[in-house]
Design a binder for these strands. Structure first.
Length: 485
RNA sequence: GGUUCCUUGGUCAAGCGGCUAAGACGUCGCCCUCUCACGGCGAAAACAGGAGUUCGAUUCUCCUAGGAACUACCA
C-alpha cells in the first residue's frame, strides 16, 4: 500500500459536468495507479448554491462510473467527517483561522458590503475588486470592541504587497506570481463558514492528501494556498492541475453549456464506460496508440506525467464514435436489454424485437438513433413514388411495377417466410428474368419499408414483418403508388 | 486592465535537436454488399509569426500575435 492519497471534492450544486468528472477520474487514477487511497469529500460551504439532491447525484455518478471512493461520507475512514458543513460544526476551520490570526497571517475584517462595493471598479466590462487591507490596521482595542458589539466580520488572509510567491505543479512546472496580485482573500465568511480557498487547504492537510488534483482554473490562485501551507508550517502537497475541457468555442465547460453533464450524456443514450474512456483521453494519452480502455486498464496505464497542458475541446463527434464502439462490443443480451425500451418507443406491434435489435446494433452510435431507423416496422410511412427510381440498378417506377406484379403470386404461394427462403425466391425470379438480384430487390425494399435506406435487407424486413403485412405493403405499392405506371 | 497558463491538420493527439512530422475522430474516394451501416484499403489536411542558440530546430531561449483561465463572503 502506497501512501498516495487523492481526493475528489465537488460541491453539490447540480449535475456533474464532464470537466468535473474527468478531474474525479484523474484523481482516482493517480491514487489507484500507485496503489493508494481515493477519497470523496463534499464541499458544501455555500448554502446559497447548494442544490437539493446534488449529493446523491455525485454519489450515483461515482457509482455508475466505477470511481468508488475508499473513504467518504458513506464509508468513513479515520479523518472524518467528510462533509464540510459537518466540519464547520466541529469548529475545525475557525480554530485554524484563529491560529493564523495569532501568527499575523490573517486578520478580522469588519468592512460592510457598501464599503466593499466602493472598492469595485469595472474594467473591460468585467467587475474587479482588490481589498485595500483597511481592517489590517485596526487596533487590538477596536477589534475587541467590534467583536463584543457583535459586528459581523470575516477573516482574511494577510498577503504582503511586495515580493513574489511561487509553487511547483507537476504538470505546469514552477509558477511564480507577484504578491501584489494576490488579494487578501476571505478565509472565513460572515456566516462562519469557510471559503473553498481555506477549507480546501485545511482539509487536504488534515485528511492526509498527498496529491491535490484539480482543474487548471485554480492555477493562478494556488500560490495563495501555498502561503497558507507555509504559514501553518505544513508540508505542501504535490499539485496536479488538469488542463481545461472546453466547448467548441474554446470556453470552459460550465453547467450552463447544456448537454455536457454526465447525466445528460446518459440521457442521450451514451454508456458510462464510453464516457469515462473518452474523457480520460481529453488531456492524457497512453504510450501507444490504444484508445479503448476499461477503467481497470486506465488504472494500469495511467501515468500523470503524460498529461498535457493545453486545453481540450470536447468533441461530440468522437464521443459518439467511441460510444458506437462500445455498443458494437456489447454482448447481444446486454445490448438487447438497453435497446428494447428505445425500440418500444416506436414499435408497439408484436414483432421479433430481438431481430430488430440485432439489425441496429452496428448501425447506431447512441441508443436514440434507433428511433428513426425502425419506425417503418410499426407502420408503412407515406412515401413518394420517386423512391422506386434507382440509377445503379436502373430501376424505374414502370419496371418496379412489373417486378412487384410478377412477384406477388410467387410470394403468395410461398410457405417458408424466412430470410433465406425469401431471398431464394427473389434470386430465382431474377435469374429467370435475366436481371441482377439488386434490380429485383430494390422495389421490394421500397414497397415493404417505404424507405430507400433501411437497417436490414429487404428479405430480412419481410421476415420480421410476416407474410400478411409484407404482402399488404406490396399491394399498397401497386395500388396506391404505382397504379399510374 | 492586471496576473497566470496555453499554441502540431477542423477536433483529440504522438513527438522530447537530425523523421517522408505517428495514430484516432471527422471529411472524401475505392472495395465488400440485398439499401444503409459494419469491415477493409486509400486520400486530402498541421508544427501561429519573428529573432536568436546550434553544423542542424516542431523540439531550447527571447519577443510578437492569438486564445483561455483567474481577478466574489462561488467553488
Amino acid at each position: 500500500m502506497s501512501n498516495v492519497k487523492t481526493r475528489f471534492a465537488p460541491s453539490p450544486t447540480g449535475r456533474m459536468h464532464v470537466g468535473n468528472l474527468r478531474t474525479a477520474l484523474y484523481s482516482y487514477l493517480i491514487a489507484k495507479h500507485a496503489g493508494g487511497t481515493f477519497m470523496l469529500r463534499i464541499e458544501d460551504t455555500d448554502q446559497n448554491r447548494e442544490m437539493e439532491g446534488a449529493v446523491d447525484i455525485i454519489k450515483r455518478t461515482m457509482q455508475e462510473t466505477g470511481l468508488i471512493p475508499d473513504e467518504g461520507p458513506d464509508n468513513p475512514g479515520t479523518v472524518g467527517p467528510y462533509v464540510q458543513s459537518e466540519r464547520v460544526k466541529a469548529g475545525i476551520y475557525m480554530k485554524y483561522a484563529k491560529m493564523l490570526i495569532e501568527k499575523g497571517e490573517a486578520y478580522y475584517c469588519f468592512c460592510t458590503q457598501e464599503r466593499l462595493d466602493s472598492l469595485r471598479r469595472e474594467v473591460d466590462g468585467k467587475e474587479i475588486m482588490m481589498y485595500d487591507k483597511h481592517c489590517l490596521h485596526l487596533s487590538k482595542e477596536e477589534i475587541e470592541a467590534n467583536l463584543k458589539a457583535g459586528k459581523p466580520y470575516v477573516i482574511r488572509q494577510n498577503v504582503p504587497n511586495e515580493g513574489t510567491t511561487k509553487f511547483e505543479d507537476e504538470i505546469y512546472g514552477t509558477i511564480e506570481v507577484p504578491n501584489e496580485e494576490l488579494d487578501d482573500m476571505v478565509l472565513i465568511k460572515s456566516d462562519g463558514y469557510p471559503t473553498y480557498n481555506f477549507a480546501n487547504v485545511v482539509d487536504d492537510h488534515l485528511m492526509g492528501i498527498t496529491h491535490v488534483v484539480r482543474g487548471n482554473e485554480y492555477l493562478s490562485s494556488a500560490p495563495k494556498y501555498n502561503r497558507l501551507y507555509k504559514a501553518f508550517g505544513w508540508e505542501v502537497p504535490t499539485y496536479v492541475h488538469c488542463p481545461l475541457i472546453t466547448d467548441e468555442e474554446h470556453h470552459k465547460l460550465s453547467k450552463r453549456s447544456g448537454h455536457s453533464s454526465f447525466e445528460d450524456l446518459l440521457d442521450g443514450g451514451f454508456v458510462s464506460e464510453a464516457i469515462v474512456n473518452y474523457v480520460a483521453l481529453l488531456g492524457w494519452s497512453p504510450e501507444d496508440d490504444r484508445e479503448i480502455f476499461s477503467l481497470q486498464e486506465l488504472v494500469e496505464n495511467f501515468d500523470y506525467h503524460r498529461m498535457s497542458k493545453s486545453p481540450a475541446v470536447f468533441d461530440m463527434k468522437k464521443m459518439r464514435w467511441m460510444n458506437g464502439e462500445y455498443i458494437k462490443a456489447m454482448n447481444p443480451e446486454t445490448f438487447y436489454e438497453r435497446a428494447v425500451p428505445e425500440i418500444r418507443k416506436v414499435v408497439t406491434k408484436d414483432l421479433d424485437l430481438k431481430k430488430i435489435a440485432d439489425m441496429v446494433k452496428t448501425r447506431i452510435e447512441v441508443f436514440p438513433d434507433i428511433d428513426d431507423m425502425v419506425g417503418f416496422f410499426e407502420e408503412l410511412p407515406e412515401y413518394d413514388v420517386s423512391l422506386f427510381q434507382n440509377k445503379k440498378w436502373k430501376v424505374t417506377p414502370e419496371k418496379a411495377k412489373k417486378v412487384l406484379s410478377d412477384l406477388l403470386p410467387l410470394l403468395e404461394a410461398q410457405q417458408d417466410w424466412s430470410n433465406d427462403a425469401l431471398y431464394e425466391v427473389l434470386k430465382t425470379y431474377s435469374q429467370s428474368e435475366e436481371v441482377k438480384p439488386g434490380f429485383t430487390i430494390w422495389p421490394v425494399r421500397i414497397a415493404v419499408s417505404g424507405k430507400q435506406v433501411t437497417p436490414a435487407g429487404a428479405t430480412e424486413i419481410m421476415e420480421v414483418l410476416g407474410k400478411d403485412e409484407s404482402l399488404l405493403r406490396i399491394h399498397v405499392a401497386l395500388d396506391r403508388y404505382l397504379s399510374d405506371f
